[in-house]
Design a binder for these strands. Structure first.
Length: 550
DNA sequence: ATGCGGATAAACATGG
DNA sequence: GCCATGTTTATCCGCA
């Protein structure tokens, strides 16, 4: 009998607790608040919706309160430093963002995108024709936001935008472009994420960026990743500012934040408050919404406010965390949405490694990730256990419960294949089966299909994948490694996969693309697993994206 | 109201 | 007998 502090009955009588609290005597807030000092920062590194899903408003308040107290006396100088660094980062990120979105806006705004098969230049031209003038676009976006939030402030802000912020003049835009170009070019190297191409001078760099970083799926994905980075930094900045305010208020000190801010204001491009009034802000909002909705994690559940993403001012992002007393149970359930796939960044790894927070992934997903991270993509049960405890602080307790769940999942899901070897047995992942399960999930969710397909209308971003999927009658890369199978052999099924109907493969392909849009560089680096190889009709970038499936 | 997927609990089997 | 491992069934819960 697995020992459990709470009886099953007791745990189930409190639905909210059944997921997060069922194995502890303490409240989640206490557990979080009693954690080590990095937890606040770890939480701050998360996207708002992640935090919202993980912690109830009360828990968040407890956390904030605790961190304020704990850090009060010992970390003031560090706080100032962190804040200054964050401000600098924010400044850089904003500059990059502005450059990126100026170039990428056509492909990133989803609703009026042309069908697939256009070149980037054609896309830009079509976009110009479709969205000549931004007014309608903005109005549409803001209207939907206003109606969903019933927020009269939005209307006021919109009015301000129209009145106060004229469109930038061409000359000003040109200057901004050059300034932004400098952001992406320093020390003779292109600073585009993951590029680092050496350019002797600015002209060469401009030629380089014009030819290499164009409106394609890779740039779009990178832009999206950058968006997430910015989101996280903003959230962290917000929290650090909040903490610092509390600290200085408590100590009756002149606010160093104010000093930092005033100092930074001299150099900074429009700050977040100004961005809200910037006429481009709604576009960024649309971009953010679009990009956020691309996330396979829970894109379908992003609230309008959350969808604003980077456009949200720090105050807005803090408001998201103010207690609204939404049900924790619902949040917990969403947190464990089956379409949440995997750890997506080093920050997340650090978060779950150090914080006693339940990871928002299913057991199956976690097991798969554990196996995929293994050098030979196979693990014994005990090694899987070890990965769980090593990777997640949450799984360092109540071993009997989650180990049972792990075993249960290994046995239950066909995507996990037990392979006998000399020393015993190891577990591997049948990637085809895993993807098939995913496809089934999304097939059964019309809203998700709509969400994904509308984003897939990104067109150029997916043209290659779609065409590949449609052109091939099979996916040659989707073959399993030859492993000896146990009695629960999947051989028949796997051969069947090579002849699955086109729609399924299209969906798989879309899914792969959708997922890779959510990958960032650290994740790629961490991804040792290359379970799928797609070879035909793809660009190098396409292959890279699809290969990095995890 | 219903079905589904995921989490959890638990019984049972097997082998070292 | 104990423990680790693996399988299976049952139940609960949230969601669509």
């Amino acid at each position: 009998m697995p020992e459990s502090p709470l009886s099953p009955k007791a745990a189930r009588q409190t639905p909210a607790a059944s997921s997060l609290l069922s194995h502890t005597d303490n409240s989640a807030a206490e557990r979080v608040a009693n954690g080590d000092s990095c937890r606040g920062v770890c939480l701050a590194m998360m996207a708002p919706r992640q935090i919202q899903h993980l912690l109830s408003p009360n828990q968040l308040q407890a956390l904030i309160h605790h961190k304020q107290q704990a850090l009060l006396l010992q970390q003031l100088p560090a706080q100032q430093l962190v804040l200054q660094q964050l401000l600098q980062l924010q400044q850089q990120q904003q500059q990059q963002q502005q450059q990126l979105f100026r170039v990428q806006r056509p492909v990133l705004s989803s609703s009026t995108l042309p069908p697939v098969g256009f070149s980037p230049a054609e896309l830009q031209q079509i976009w110009k024709e479709l969205t000549n003038g931004l007014t309608e676009d903005k109005t549409t976006i803001k209207s939907s936001y206003d109606s969903s939030t019933n927020d009269t402030r939005s209307t006021q802000v919109r009015g301000r935008q129209a009145d106060v912020q004229p469109s930038p003049s061409p000359r000003r835009t040109e200057c901004a472009d050059r300034a932004a170009s400098h952001v992406l070019y320093s020390h003779g190297v292109c600073n585009w994420p993951g590029c680092e191409t050496a350019c002797d001078n600015l002209n060469q760099f401009i030629r380089h960026i014009g030819s290499e970083h164009t409106l394609d799926d890779r740039s779009t994905a990178q832009c999206r990743v950058q968006m997430q980075v910015v989101q996280q930094l903003e959230l962290q900045l917000c929290k650090e500012q909040q903490r610092l305010r509390a600290m200085t208020a408590h100590l009756h000190l002149p606010s160093p934040e104010a000093q930092s801010l005033s100092a930074a204001a001299g150099q900074q491009l429009p700050d977040m408050t100004d961005m809200a009034a910037d006429p481009r802000a709604p576009q960024l909002g649309a971009v953010a919404s679009d990009l956020t909705s691309l996330s396979p994690s829970d894109g379908a559940q992003v609230s309008p406010l959350q969808s604003l993403g980077p456009v949200s001012s720090p105050s807005q992002c803090c408001e998201e965390e103010t207690p609204t007393h939404t049900g924790c149970a619902g949040a917990m359930r969403r947190r464990q949405h089956p379409l949440v796939y995997s750890l997506s960044s080093e920050n997340e790894y650090e978060l779950y490694k150090n914080s006693d927070i339940r990871p928002p992934f299913t057991y199956a997903t976690l097991i798969r990730q554990a196996i995929m991270e293994a050098p030979d993509m196979q693990l014994t049960l005990n090694e899987i256990y070890n990965w769980f405890t090593r990777t997640f602080a949450y799984f360092r307790r109540n071993a009997a419960t989650w180990k049972n769940a792990v075993r249960h999942n290994l046995s239950l899901h066909k995507c996990f294949v037990r392979v006998e070897n000399v020393k015993g047995a190891v577990w591997t992942v049948d990637e085809v089966e895993f993807q098939r399960r995913r496809s089934q999930k999304i097939t059964g969710s019309p809203s998700l299909i709509k969400n994904v397909t509308s984003n897939l209308a990104l067109g150029a971003a997916l043209t290659a994948s779609l065409q590949t999927a449609l052109a091939d009658t099979s996916l040659p890369g989707f073959t399993k490694e030859s492993v000896s199978r146990n009695s629960r052999s999947q051989t028949q099924e796997s051969s069947g996969h090579n002849h699955q109907n086109i729609s399924l493969r299209v969906q798989q392909c879309l899914f792969l693309k959708d997922e890779t849009m959510n990958l960032d560089e650290p994740e790629r680096q961490m991804a040792t697993a290359k379970p799928v190889t797609l070879q035909h009709g793809m660009t190098g970038n396409d292959q890279e994206h699809l290969l990095d499936l995890k």
